Amino acid sequence: MEVISIEKKTFEEMTLKFDEFVKRIENVCHRNSDKGMGEWLDNQEVCKLLNICPRTLQTLRDNGTLAYSQIQHKIYYKAGDVQRIVSVVENKRKEARFRNKTI
């Protein structure tokens, strides 16, 4: 094991800077927690909530109906955005049923 020694004054300055850094991070987290970020849902959860298939969900993303965020290869949706389009999906479902009945 390698031992490194530093002056007490240097250690105290490092500790002070680290404490300041922690306070800044806590302030940022506190400010952003008040923005109503809410719960995030993945593809499977959204498909279940809207009773749609993954391809339909992709269409909603592609045409801009449903906003999303992507982290690496995983896609997430804000719960509020999903709730907002429930009526849109229901109306399209009713239109499709009506078209099928008139044919």
Score class of each variant (00 low, 15 high):
4 I>M: 13
74 K>N: 10
89 V>W: 01
93 R>I: 07
61 R>W: 00
32 N>H: 11
35 K>I: 09
2 E>A: 11
66 L>G: 02
10 T>K: 14
87 S>R: 13
78 K>G: 04
89 V>C: 03
68 Y>Q: 03
102 T>W: 11
56 T>N: 06
29 C>T: 13
103 I>Y: 08
30 H>Q: 14
24 R>I: 06
43 N>M: 09
59 T>A: 05
21 F>M: 09
41 L>E: 06
95 E>S: 08
31 R>T: 10
62 D>T: 04
9 K>W: 06
96 A>Y: 06
44 Q>Y: 09
99 R>I: 09
87 S>F: 10
3 V>A: 08
7 E>I: 03
56 T>Y: 00
77 Y>N: 01
77 Y>I: 03
54 P>Q: 01
85 I>R: 00
28 V>E: 12
93 R>V: 08
38 G>E: 07
19 D>S: 11
65 T>G: 00
41 L>I: 02
91 N>K: 15
58 Q>I: 01
8 K>T: 13
47 C>F: 03
64 G>F: 01
69 S>M: 12
39 E>C: 10
74 K>Q: 11
69 S>N: 10
63 N>F: 10
50 L>R: 04
3 V>K: 11
48 K>I: 08
99 R>T: 05
13 E>S: 09
66 L>K: 02
85 I>G: 01
11 F>P: 00
88 V>Q: 06
94 K>F: 10
83 Q>C: 08
33 S>H: 13
12 E>A: 10
25 I>A: 12
39 E>I: 15
